[in-house]
Design a protein around this nucleic acid. Structure first.
Lengths: 146, 146
DNA sequence: ATAAATTTTAGAGTTTACTCTAAGTCAAGA
DNA sequence: TCTTGACTTAGAGTAAACTCTAAAATTTAT
C-alpha cells in the first residue's frame, strides 16, 4: 500500500512539513516520487519512519539516525557497525531506564510528602512521619530542616 | 556548606553559564549574593538544582519547572497544585517507561537480527530463523520480504 | 603586591528540530 | 470546466536550552 505525504504524516502522527524536513536531512532516502513530483510513501518507507521514531524516542539526535541510515545505504560491509550502534543504543536505553527509576523515586517521595501535608497541614511533617524523613534522607542525603 | 558558582556547577555537572541562565529564567530564586555581587550557592540551592535536574530528566521543560517553583514561592495555598503536578509527572514517567520498553524490544530485535546476519551471512535470515521472523511480525506488523 | 583565576553583566550567537510562508502545481469532485 | 484541497519548492522564522564573548571587578595564591 502507498501513501501520499499527508496520509503518511497522519499515520505516523507527524506533519507533512516534518516528513519533508526529514527527507531534506537525509533520513528518508528511499521515498519515490511520481512523474509530477508528488512523494509516494511505500510500506517500507513507513517502516523506516517507525525505526526513526524508535531511535528518536530513545534520545538519538537526527544526525545519529542519519548515520545509521547512511551505514545501511553503504551496503553489507558495515554490518558490524550497525550491530554495534544498536548495542550502544541498548546500553543508552538501559541507562535511561535507571535514570527514570531514580527520578520516579524522588517524585514518589514528593507525592508522599505533599499528600501528608495536604492531609495533616503543612507543619511538622517530619516530626510526625519518621518514615518520610528517612526516605528523604536516603534520596537527598541532607535533611530539610536544621 | 556554601559553594561558588563554579563549585556548584562542578558538583551538578553543569556549567556556570547554565546556572546563570537558570537564575535568569527564574529557576533559582533563593541564591544569595555577597556584598560584591558573587553568587553563593547554599546546600538548599543545591537541593533545588537536584529537583530541577530530576524534573528536567523526566522531560519537563524549564517553563514547567519554573511554574512549580513559582507555586512554591506563593506559599502554602497551592499545595494541592504542587501535589497534582507531581502526580501528573509520575504519570508521564510511567508513560515514558512504557515507551522505552517498547523501543527496547525493537532494539533487541535489531540486535538479534544483525547478530544473526554477522554470524551467518546476510541472506536468508528469515528462512533459517523462524523465531526472529515471528518476533519481527509482532513488533513491526509487516514482513520485510514479500 | 601582584599575577592568575574566577566571577560579574548584558547581550549576541548556536544548535536542534521543527514550523510556517508564499507562490505556484496537481488531482478529484460537482 | 471550475473549484477546492493537497501537494511542490526554497527559504524564512521560531522555541528551547544552552553557549559564548567582552570588559570589568573580585578573589586567591605566590
Amino acid at each position: 500500500m502507498n501513501y501520499s505525504i499527508g496520509q503518511a504524516a497522519k499515520k505516523m502522527g507527524l506533519t507533512a512539513h516534518t516528513l519533508r524536513y526529514y527527507e531534506k536531512e537525509g533520513l528518508l532516502p528511499f521515498v519515490k516520487k511520481t512523474s509530477s513530483g508528488l512523494r509516494i510513501f511505500s510500506e517500507e518507507d513507513i517502516g523506516w519512519l517507525q525505526m526513526i521514531e524508535c531511535l528518536k524516542g530513545t534520545g538519538m539526535p537526527l544526525k545519529g539516525i542519519k548515520q545509521y541510515i547512511d551505514w545501511f545505504i553503504e551496503g553489507d560491509s558495515p554490518l558490524q557497525k550497525r550491530l554495534d550502534m544498536f548495542k550502544q543504543q541498548k546500553i543508552k536505553i538501559e541507562e535511561q531506564m535507571r535514570e527514570l527509576k531514580k527520578h520516579m523515586e524522588k517524585i514518589n517521595y514528593k507525592i508522599a510528602y505533599y499528600t501528608e501535608m495536604v492531609e495533616n497541614g503543612s507543619d511538622g511533617v517530619f516530626e510526625r512521619n519518621k518514615e518520610l524523613a528517612k526516605e528523604r534522607a536516603r534520596l537527598f542525603g541532607t535533611p530539610e530542616r536544621k
